[in-house]
Design a protein around this nucleic acid. Structure first.
Length: 609
DNA sequence: ATGTAAGTTGTGTTA
DNA sequence: CTAACACAACTTACA
């Protein structure tokens, strides 16, 4: 049964709908306007029937040094907290907007530095924490600093705490006499569990909880409900169900309520990366992309300036080898952290479409990309064990090979295929590569060449990408490995010719793999075929300065194709033994084989019964 | 129920 | 330079 917990967080319709004043620069001081849209959460549990969950035990004992001051109820309701996690922005932020409303005397804007994401892990394969490379950590810190400065310009500030988020939030809710807690609804499993602890505690303590859906265009739970309780598994059916997304909030603030007394809690200023314990780690090249809402809105404006480009955008036509001027907007990391509202972005795009007239449409258009994002969020929300093969009902069960050496070669950009390796180096250095470049390396690792588990590749991307987003990253690995959504496993990206058609001279390779920079054009994609004299002249001996190919693509890809065919034929999906449906498929498949003159099987007997 | 159409993004050859 | 096609044949959604 799909999780539809978010269903209880239903959207209500607009109050005081406002449609004017749409500037690209939402940070300018426009006259405050009314709420365009409001989300409401019904009471999760009546305070009169508190049944604290077992997990809340850690929450219910406030610090002895900060005993909760029991205040009159009216006093409690005058303090509000907005808890930032994603949604690191001021614009289109329903949680923030709700927090400062309703006679809020003191507003506590909080972010908790979670050791799960920030604690240095020296055993990881690259600098960073167990889950995140340094580039994304830095992006987060940028975003927090920008959020803090935006809040300060409104007479507030970001209250930065450090520790395990759920117990810590529960403690400060008590100690700061918070009457109203507002945070953006988050669909990821880790977040759902964390937020349930906090919501349960808050409700049991009589604290009002407001948890709007504002990270995505739509509420995934609504889409799933509309589809009869199951997530739609094709983009088209998703789009048909989704309809038009709600408009963003268009409220501008001159001032926010002041921050209240934070007692003895030590408030951190946004740390530098060195202060998190990464001081002694040197990374040769940092991502050129800086985090934060200001940068997001600047980039958005920049991207949308060329209306013709926006109107003609077609995703599959982008050039994955473009790196001086990437072929896409590069807004994905800002969407991931919520520095940019997807609803605001969507609205800007539609304003342009209206003004230009002729434009591309989903799935290939820019707006279509935002719908893809929502598609994966929806399926991820409605699919238990979405992030693994076992126990995932929509995932093909494939006997992937376990080969640490090949995995490391892929991860470190040492496969001997310059196109693949250059992409992996760009990923490591920049934390970003073009969509089609991701396809190339994901296909190569899984069904195309190495036949290694998509979960292994997923882990590497999750760590290194600054835009790594749980639903989207897993969704795309399922897609590229032909484990779900996409099944044409005989379509394999060539690690040689795919890049060549965009960048025949190999400029991209030369940039990210300088060891190959003097290799002649005709060998740049297949340097192992260069005569030794050429290798010497290029000062790059294959097998010494740059590796020989770890597999022969022609042979490996054929083997992979065969293994995929076998895996598909055995037709196990999820943890099910073949069900009625899949044995049906198997029967038909066998029949087809009979028609083509294969030896008879028992399928005919089966059919008669 | 069985058949059919369609599916964001393959390669390599031929016209 | 672009388009059509073979290659070999998957799944979901829907009639």
């Amino acid at each position: 049964m799909p999780r539809v917990r978010g269903k209880q967080y239903q959207q209500t319709t607009a109050l005081d709908l406002h449609t004017g004043n749409r500037e690209s620069d939402v940070a300018t001081n426009q006259p405050p306007v009314t709420v365009a849209m409001l989300f409401q959460i019904p009471a999760v549990r009546s305070p009169s029937t508190p049944s604290p969950p077992s997990s809340s035990s850690s929450c219910s004992s406030p610090s002895p040094r900060n005993p909760p001051r029991r205040s009159p109820r009216s006093r409690m309701e005058s303090n509000a907290m907005v808890w930032f996690r994603k949604g690191l922005r001021i614009h289109d932020n329903p949680a923030l907007d709700h927090a400062r409303r309703g006679g809020c005397a003191r507003l506590f804007p909080v972010f908790v530095l979670d050791p799960r994401y920030l604690e240095p892990d020296p055993t990881a394969f690259s600098p960073g924490s167990a889950r995140s490379g340094l580039n994304r950590i830095r992006f987060l810190l940028d975003s927090l600093a920008d959020l803090d400065s935006a809040l300060r310009s409104l007479g507030s500030r970001l209250l930065l705490l450090r520790g395990e988020p759920a117990p810590l939030i529960c403690r400060v809710l008590k100690d700061w006499n918070i009457g109203k807690l507002c945070f953006e609804f988050d669909t990821e499993p880790y977040s759902l569990a964390r937020d349930k602890q906090v919501s349960d505690f808050a409700s049991a303590s009589g604290i009002q909880v407001f948890s709007p859906v504002s990270h995505t265009l739509f509420n995934p739970a609504d889409i799933i409900e509309k589809n009869g309780g199951r997530a739609p598994l094709t983009y088209q059916s998703f789009v048909a169900l989704a309809g038009k997304p709600p408009e963003p909030l268009s409220v501008t603030y001159h001032e926010l309520p002041p921050v209240g007394d934070t007692g003895e809690y030590q408030l951190l200023s946004v740390p530098k990366i060195e202060e998190l314990g990464y001081g002694d780690i040197s990374q040769e090249e940092f991502s050129p992309f800086r985090g934060g809402e200001s940068e997001a809105l600047r980039r958005l404006k920049e991207s949308l300036k060329d209306k013709e480009w926006v109107a003609k955008f077609e995703k599959p036509k982008g050039d994955p080898s473009a790196f001086l001027k990437p072929a896409t907007t590069l807004l994905s990391p800002y969407l991931k952290f919520g520095c940019l509202s997807s609803r605001y972005f969507y609205q800007c795009l539609h304003d342009i479409y209206k003004s230009v007239g002729k434009h591309t449409s989903p799935p290939v258009s820019l707006a279509g990309q935002l719908l893809w994002r929502d598609f994966f969020y929806t399926v991820a929300f409605g699919t238990p064990n979405f992030d693994c093969m076992r126990g995932n009902k929509i995932c093909k069960q494939v006997p992937w090979r376990d080969d640490e050496e090949l995995l490391v070669a892929w991860r470190e950009g040492q496969t001997g295929y310059p196109w693949i390796d250059a992409i992996m180096i760009q990923l490591k250095k920049w934390g970003w590569v073009h969509h089609l470049a991701r396809h190339s390396v994901a296909c190569f690792l899984t069904r195309g060449d190495l036949f290694i588990h998509w979960e292994k590749g997923r882990d590497v991307f999750e760590r290194l990408l600054i835009d790594s987003d749980w639903a989207i990253n897993n969704g795309n690995w399922l897609w590229l490995s032909c484990s779900s959504f996409f099944y044409q496993y005989y379509r394999i990206y060539s690690p040689i010719s795919f890049g060549k058609k965009y960048d025949p001279n190999g400029n991209y390779i030369r940039h990210f793999l300088p060891v190959l920079k003097d290799m002649p054009n005709e060998y740049i994609y297949e340097p192992w075929t260069a005569p030794l004299s050429v290798q010497k002249k290029a000062r790059c001996i294959i097998g010494k300065d740059y590796p020989k190919p770890v597999v022969d693509h022609d042979i490996a890809s054929k083997e992979c194709r065969k293994k995929m065919a076998e895996a598909y034929a055995s037709n196990h999906s999820g943890e099910n033994v073949p069900s009625g449906r899949s044995s049906n498929v198997l029967r038909r498949k066998l029949q087809n084989e009979n028609r083509e003159g294969s030896p008879p099987t028992n399928s005919k007997q089966r059919k008669k019964h």
